[in-house]
Write a protein that binds this DNA or RNA. Structure first.
Length: 661
RNA sequence: GCCGACCUGGCGCAAUUGGUAGCGCACCGCUCUUGUAAAGCGGGGGUUACGGGUUCGAGUCCCGUGGUCGGCUCCA
């Protein structure tokens, strides 16, 4: 018969499979007419076939999926009974969920990993068998979770849809060289041909509970996460990346560099910034203020608490009361007989700033001449985040948003959105983030939670989309991800080690202008409803602080660094020389110190390098005579014999230009 | 919120089968200082997260509370 093989016609035997096409062992599966298949898949006349290399994204997923199977086999051999949940490949690895009597312990993972490596050596073939629903039920009769999936087929199994596909069901059997079946699982496939192909470049990382089918009303299963790679080098490199990420962890750097802490006495998710962190934060905020002022924003201020009525009007109490701190009940008075003498008031900590800004807008009649009206505030908000989700500075209960609300007319919407996006990206770049993509969150037309008319959503969404496309950045759709009150664009930034963080959001609000009955008078003398844009740039200062800390691994560029320069005299007697220079720089606003301690010079260099000070300036006799200093940087490099005048320029320029050193 | 693990001086770690807390760094003092990542000596500092319980005796065992970590769910 004839097939199209790697884009060229080829004649093959009638019974040919993928195995007949490839000698190359790195080809681990095939794509037949654009569908992934096992190498053992029997080809048909006219098929278009290409090989899937283990290095490709699809090949890696297959490797990881097979590794997950191997793990499940090992777990079921060691732990009886262990019922199978789902076991898909994920980024860099895989997981598998099990219903076991006891949660896994770290030693258990070692045992399982050891058994997996033995299974690799057993050279079991992974063989696909298509089965009817009845057969599948019979084969999986002891696997209650699998039986549930058989009933569901591909309907919403979530990311674990690897078990069941759209068509017929299939099982994969792990078959020993002697032909006996060692293990089997309900699975859509495809898989590697053989356990040997999985290799030994994998490891199990951690175990944790996970709700069955991702629903918190369901039972929690025990999930084991692992990572798997084609080669040991790639595997080791991945573990090194994890270590690198751990070194950058802002929670660790926050302690090491004395930036902030979360005193237990205050409460979970409530941070205090220490003087060194305070400098960074103040500089971040000052620069943001300056840029907002230049961009035509007006600064407003609002209190941290409010009577409940405001959040009733805004709808926050209706939609988000679970996420709000409970109310303070004030002012109620009771008579001796217990009857109410005076009606009390509930006051709430604010979870959002928008209702306050709206009240400012509504405080008087507004004219079209005032639009676009841009209100900006570093507004502190409090959200009752569930205890399990708190995470350093990136998920807290008290935070300060760099929040702005823009009130615009219909005609101004597109141009203002374009301005905002430009503004946001420009500012993020100034803080050192350069690699962005956009996400467009739209509504799910089936879901009734979204308020507002179809036309309004339609227009808002298409406006956001055209603005996003015009930016030239990659645009990723996020269907159903919109807030109930409007669609949004979010800016995702990649940091220095390639992780992505959701930064800014630009969100249209079709709800609040209605609820607060906002109006302005147009040039036609008629009343019109403004459109409202919510916009946070950092998201929250705390979170952005955390992200920048990790992005820079604590090596803040000079303009942000808490201490920008430290002078280290070669010996005591040169302290005055450096101090004089330091005093001069300080008068230019440079955060500079001279280390007059009685440590030896080498020790001082070590201390300030570890404190990640951008510039260390050394001076000894030679320098004092010549009027020079020498620079030492955080990476250990040095520049000697720099004249004081040049040194001054160099330092001031790095600070003013916001460059990294 | 759920599941699991963890909590020892500021930080990182020790403490045999339960026998009444040690080390390094940091800090303080003294001595010493000459060219690019740790000078020497001495000193102070912990009711072992908190509250109960078991025991002759608890950092070690049990229960509760708080907090942290890893996930899940959530994230206006």
């Amino acid at each position: 018969m004839n097939i199209i093989f790697e884009e060229s016609p080829k004649e093959v035997a009638d019974s040919a499979t993928g195995f007949d096409l490839f000698q190359d062992r790195s080809i681990v599966a095939i794509k037949v007419n654009d569908e992934l298949r096992d190498l053992s898949h029997k080809l048909s006349d006219g098929d278009t076939v290409i090989g899937v290399s283990i290095d490709s994204d699809e090949g890696l997923s297959i490797l990881r999926h097979s590794a997950a199977h191997l793990m499940a086999q090992a777990v079921q051999e060691i732990f009886d009974p262990a019922k199978l949940g789902i076991g898909p490949p994920i980024k860099d690895g895989f997981y598998f969920d099990f219903d076991v009597e006891e949660p896994f312990k770290p030693e258990d993972l070692k045992k399982i990993e050891k058994r997996m490596k033995e299974l690799v050596g057993k050279s079991q073939r992974f063989v696909r068998r298509e089965v009817s629903d009845e057969e599948a039920r019979e084969l999986m009769k002891n696997e209650p979770y699998k039986l549930e999936l058989i009933g569901l087929k591909s309907a919403d199994v979530g990311e674990g849809a690897a078990e069941v596909g759209a068509g017929t069901l299939s099982v994969y059997e792990n078959i020993n060289p002697d032909g006996t079946i060692a293990w089997m699982d309900l699975c859509r496939g495809p898989h590697l041909p053989n356990s040997r192909t999985v290799g030994k470049s994998f490891s199990l990382l951690r175990s944790a509970a996970a709700y069955w089918r991702g629903n918190e009303n369901n039972k929690q299963l025990q999930r084991i996460y692992g990572t798997a790679w084609p080669t040991q080098e790639q595997h080791d490199a991945h573990l090194e990346r994890l270590e690198e990420a751990a070194k950058r962890d802002h929670r660790k750097l926050g302690v090491d560099l004395d930036l902030f802490s979360f005193p237990e006495e205050i409460g979970s998710g409530l941070a205090v910034f220490h003087p060194k962190g305070g400098v960074i934060r103040r500089v971040m905020e000052d620069y943001s203020r300056k840029r907002h002022e230049e961009a035509g924003y007006e600064f407003v201020y609002s209190p941290h608490i409010t009577k409940s009525n405001l959040f009733e009007i805004s709808g926050h109490l209706q939609w988000y009361s679970d996420g709000m701190f409970p109310p303070m009940k004030l002012d109620a008075e009771y008579a001796d007989d217990g009857t109410l003498k005076r009606q009390g008031q509930d006051y709430y900590l604010k979870p959002m700033n928008c209702p306050f800004h709206i009240l400012i807008f509504r405080s008087r009649q507004r004219s079209y001449r005032e639009l676009p009206l841009r209100m900006f505030e570093f507004g502190s908000v409090y959200r009752y985040e569930k205890s399990g989700v708190l995470h350093g500075l990136t998920r807290v209960r008290g935070m300060t948003q760099d929040d702005a609300h823009l009130f615009v007319s219909n005609e101004q919407l597109e141009s203002e959105l374009t301005n905002v996006l430009d503004f946001v990206l420009g500012l993020l770049r100034d803080y050192g983030l350069n690699d962005f993509y956009l996400e467009l969150s739209t509504r799910d037309p089936e879901n009734p939670k979204f308020v507002g008319s179809d036309e309004l959503w339609e227009r808002a969404t298409s406006t956001l989309e055209s603005v996003a496309s015009a930016s030239g950045l990659q645009l990723v759709p996020d269907p159903g991800g919109a807030a109930f009150y409007g669609p949004k664009i979010s800016v995702q930034a990649r940091d220095a080690i390639g992780r992505t963080w959701q930064m800014s959001t630009i969100q249209l609000d079709l709800n609040l202008p209605e609820r607060f009955d906002l109006e302005y008078v147009g040039s036609d003398g008629e009343r019109h409803r403004p459109i409202m844009i919510h916009r946070a740039l950092f998201g929250s200062i705390e979170r952005f602080f955390g992200v920048l800390t990790e992005h820079y691994a604590g090596h803040f560029p000079p303009w942000l660094a808490p201490v920008q320069v430290v002078g280290v005299p070669i010996a005591d007697e040169f302290g005055d020389y450096l101090q004089k220079f330091a005093d001069e720089l300080r008068s230019h606003g440079v955060r500079i110190e001279v280390d007059h301690s009685d440590n030896r010079m080498q020790k001082k260099i070590r201390d300030h390098t570890m404190a990640k000070v951008p510039f260390i300036l050394l001076a000894g006799a030679r320098d004092q005579e010549a009027g020079t200093v020498s620079f030492r940087y955080r990476d250990g490099s040095q520049e000697n014999d720099i004249s004081l005048a040049d040194a001054r320029i160099k330092i001031l320029k790095a600070i003013n230009d916001k460059t990294q050193v």
